[in-house]
Design a protein around this nucleic acid. Structure first.
Lengths: 198, 198, 198, 198
DNA sequence: AATGAATGAGGGTTCATTCAT
DNA sequence: GATGAATGAACCCTCATTCAT
């Protein structure tokens, strides 16, 4: 890659980064192309040259974001930790990467975009499924998950918890800084309301 | 209330109803005052006369919505059902009332509105807390919730599950029409990943 | 019509007039809504409130213009003049009304507008046809037009001459100010290249 | 001319051809440099290297077009046909070359371009005049044109008819496929509304 | 109280043109 | 000479809001 292309790639990265930053803060609709251009220090037109339209930009931002989240999850699973620790790490995303995942807002943006829906569908089936399956196996092996647990339901449960947590920073922050809240919630996810029978 | 005031009140209701309907479908930003005025069959100015501004209207819509959701929860708790049934009813909102609760979108609208934040804060402390407490007591009494469970954590857990479920209709719908999925998820909420020890 | 509506109608007229003026000078594409708004001393949005879009405005301008041209033609025919005089008046449009008829430009604007095409089609069939027929009858009665001349061809010939003349002010002006050129051209239209046999 | 320069010349031709094609279809304003570059398979900048600006390109396109039309007329006149046949061929341009002559649109492009006006002026005086004169002489010789017909008026009449016909494809096409319409119109051009006295 | 008309500010997008390689 | 990348200016249009009745 010569200097020309590297510079181009740098600008593209800068745009994506600035867009992500702003979308996180204010949502897709409220952020204008002009805002992003200013933040990335490029002309508006450069954004159009790279992404074609605002929708095109949103698409790329969402794709990049989901990929990053998945990479993070893969990494967590590879680490040498217990199942509860991994579960907690994935759901609460201490690295803050996934906090960028604006649950509902993302859905809103994707709702009327068939191409995006297809991409996500295949992303889910091909990439996420594998990661989830790995985690499930480990949970069963270590005795934290019932052997009867189906993969499908486990995957759904996991995502609901993730989205629920991401959608509730206001509530969680109210309880902090007692950091134990994460541990206790995680306990609930594993043992349920009933708690561990002992 | 005379006929004149009743008519006035009707218009206000119509505006709120139309606004809610449209906000549900397209989110706050995408719906214009003009859209709402057309749907409610009033002039734009009438909306301003009643609500002062778009933000004012949003505020009232959110308040009305949250109140309705709470009423629904109260009603569920009063019914003659078991704790798991009530839990399921509240979280999955079969009545679809809470599906109007555009999780993340609502937060986005509230984020920069201190007045609204105050209202919600007190709403949570005074009204929601009571309902949650009732449910928690019942869960403990019937043996579905560990006696050691704190009210604060229970409330947080409940809200995370609610928001997670509301944010995941795409995933849940993919599994349907096997309606058992609701029951099985509810089972997970109560007994956790580990499942009931028996 | 009360004062409110009269004022509204005045603004609409002002917009149409300004638009026509500018379109005449620079063509449809080169004139921006902003230009028209400035010329008519209204806000851009007012134009949108009245005409919906730039295309909508163009439509109305074209319709108004064609109607005015036709009215002028009707008036000419009613006057107490000879056939050649009327022919000349219609084709050369000394009143300059029809000089506003930007032949090709208008067609360009209409090309991709089915609704407009329909309107023009019916306008031609219902209104123009009648006027043309009146003129043709008179021409035959006075002996300036061959009795064998079909109405269809006469109408086509007339329009070709009109459009050709409108499209050629550059050439005609080069010959002026010898005003006789109009008379001589008109002579050509009636007697052809061969001239009158006498 | 070596291979290098030939290649360069080819690109220039390709650009002119693509530009003409697109201008014909959509007019000068609606076609962007980017469109032309894509159609000619060159970079936008190459167009600027060759023509300096969009206006420069338009100038060259117009010049090339007018030259082609004139060449065609010359060719027609050289053929072994009667005057009416030649007149018809020139006015109706069955070869479709002149259909590229976007009457009014071209004028619009030329209007504010003094350089272009000068070029056209001299083109008219030096080249077109000669061709017209040849045709006029032939018409008089064969007895189809009155001996008293001045060259100036004949030229003007011819151009008006040409432009009128080019501006009226919509009307002419409505009468087709009765191909006789061309002949009958041509008859009108020669003998006028009054028709041949016999 | 209610409305139709009007608007300033701003949004996404396209264009002719220039820069850097 | 040719190109991909970048841009300032402008365009059409929409919105929340106010004015005049």
């Amino acid at each position: 890659m010569n200097g020309f292309e590297r510079k181009k790639e740098q600008k593209k990265k800068a745009i994506l980064q600035a867009a992500l930053e702003l979308f996180k803060l204010h949502g897709f609709k409220k952020v204008s192309i002009s805002d992003i251009a200013r933040a990335a220090d490029v002309s508006q037109v450069t954004i159009y040259n790279h992404f074609g339209s605002k929708d095109g930009l949103i698409r790329e931002v969402v794709k990049a974001l989901l990929s990053r989240i998945l990479d993070k999850a893969r990494e967590i699973i590879r680490e040498d930790k217990s199942f509860p620790e991994k579960l907690e790490a994935i759901i609460f995303d201490k690295t803050k990467i996934a906090s960028e995942y604006q649950g509902e807002l993302m859905r809103a943006a994707v709702r009327n975009d068939p191409e995006m829906q297809d991409w996500i569908e295949s992303f889910w089936q091909e990439d996420v499924k594998q990661v989830t399956l790995d985690l499930l196996k480990e949970g069963k092996r270590e005795g934290y998950v019932s052997p009867r647990q189906s993969e499908e339901l486990f995957s759904l449960y996991l995502e609901i918890l993730r989205r629920g947590v991401f959608a509730s920073p206001d509530l969680i922050n109210k309880i902090e800084p007692d950091v134990e809240v994460y541990r206790e919630l995680n306990y609930l996810f594993i043992y349920g309301l009933m708690g561990k029978k002992d």
